[in-house]
Write a protein that binds this DNA or RNA. Sequence first.
DNA 1: GTGAAAGCGCTAACAA
DNA 2: TTGTTAGCGCTTTCAC
Lengths: 330, 330
Amino acid sequence: MSEVTLKKLADLLNLSISTVSRALKDHEDISAETKNRVKELALILDYEPNTYAVNLRNNFSREFAVIIPSIANDFYQSFISSLEKEARLNSYSLIILQSGDDPQTELECVKRCKQNRVAGIFVSITQKTTDISHFLKLAESHIPVVFFDKVPASGFCNKVCVDDISAARLSAETLILKKKKGILAIFGNEQLSITQKRLDAFKDTFSLHNYDARPDIYHTNSSAGAYHYTMEQLALPQQPDVIFCMSDEILIGVMRAVQTVGLRPPADIGILAISEGQIPTFYFPQITYVETSGFKLAKLAFSRMLGCLAGSTQVQELKTESIIVEGGSL
Amino acid sequence: MSEVTLKKLADLLNLSISTVSRALKDHEDISAETKNRVKELALILDYEPNTYAVNLRNNFSREFAVIIPSIANDFYQSFISSLEKEARLNSYSLIILQSGDDPQTELECVKRCKQNRVAGIFVSITQKTTDISHFLKLAESHIPVVFFDKVPASGFCNKVCVDDISAARLSAETLILKKKKGILAIFGNEQLSITQKRLDAFKDTFSLHNYDARPDIYHTNSSAGAYHYTMEQLALPQQPDVIFCMSDEILIGVMRAVQTVGLRPPADIGILAISEGQIPTFYFPQITYVETSGFKLAKLAFSRMLGCLAGSTQVQELKTESIIVEGGSL
DNA sequence: GTGAAAGCGCTAACAA
DNA sequence: TTGTTAGCGCTTTCAC
């Protein structure tokens, strides 16, 4: 059974191809009767326009690409889930590409996007991406790029981010409000700008409030690191009163240690995290956290993309607001 | 700056379009010198073939679609992560479509796939999908379909699944081997075939071994349900010795209850789950589980898809093997 | 070795 | 109101 094309419909109906095309598009100068005949047959034969031909002709597609280090991450998962829905409701499709956190692979992904003539690209760059010229060059091909989450430090480009500064500030203020004193704060990889932003805002907030206790700061790159360090600290005669976790990854390590030692929040120890929101629900009591939602960020990124496609040329830097979600761990 | 096309290269080099096309493809009857000239200029001008034109001409694309209820799920996440990688290494792209577990939306996704002339579709159907004729009809358009995980009960089609029966059997055998007696087994929605398969195999294994203890079976549809039921059971004078969780969702609820009451595995209570593998690492000690890996399933599904594209017409039902991963909870 | 030309399925300007 | 035609960028057959 061969493909149903406009030509086939036209032959069957003794009409020209263009009439059939226009009838299917409800073009005004086709008679109602012809429209009905055409549409009826199209329905019966299950006609679907050939996207390649349409795109080739119109020189434009309805596909967005998302380039991320890895989809196996709660944050990106919620981001993509939300983005796909927005896209689908706007008749766009979403192509997923994983860079594996490798700049070389990322470059190949960009090339692929260009080949596919995608309508736009959402990208969260790798930890090692410094040169973003291949992204900026996409402007020549009129492919808008919206950077999200992990965005380049410099460059005139569209960026949508979680507001790290307000998230960290909100965390610190929460601790101050609850008059917590022995604060252990565990942060991620010191090299990353996300860590620096959150750390600076966190520390500054204590200074600004002239608070009489200052947090102990520790850095680690992994869940395991957080686990081991927490184990050490919990073995000391002077245990911390509260542990602040900069990310879900760190929270997981800390909670394993807390469970290992048998401490029970909030009585034995307080826990506060910055989190995407899923992990905190796995524990009892659920962890109190400052939310950095992928869902919200996706909506922001998508509307920015539509803005670009609508012709907005100036670049924007947007941020999502943070809110605190009360569990029972503090 | 306009697009770089074959025509543009040809004009610039004073060659014909077809010569340029052939040169770029290393066609044998183009001279080495011409090839070099062409390739050099193509590189300089950053030429990329127009995928739409290529696909239109060849009537075939290098895009696969994945239709799933929702990407926000650890199992699908690992499946897609793995599938994307396989696809990329084979120069395919992956389009993600979420059905929202709604048959109507699923139907629209299929339509979209057809329009996009995708090279093949991977699909995990919704809980309510009964009519799969729209999938079977894709055969007419020569679009192979590989069902995975949630597959239709009937119909001649390609299916790759986690082996629920062997996973449940392995779980039961593990409990028997460890001579566990007071077994509480919590299963999911009784209506789902996955639940029935796992339940039947689980129970049968105890019978087959003439084991002198039989598990208490309970069904629930949610984490919260598992939590509440576990709380009830742990309040009884005769607490269970071990709790078996059919899925990650149930495990999360059970563990919240276990933590609430303050029991510590494995001394106070044993825990065994069937799991995708991430959740069990969040606890201490880590939960012992029978693995049902999305990664493995993706590899299986992908190779089946390649088989279809290579012309294999007969349908196959494939299953991944289960293995037990020892934590310290049993 | 290279070029000319047809055609993939569709849209839209122009004709009738 | 409907039809004719050119052309989007590419591949490939056939001719030179």
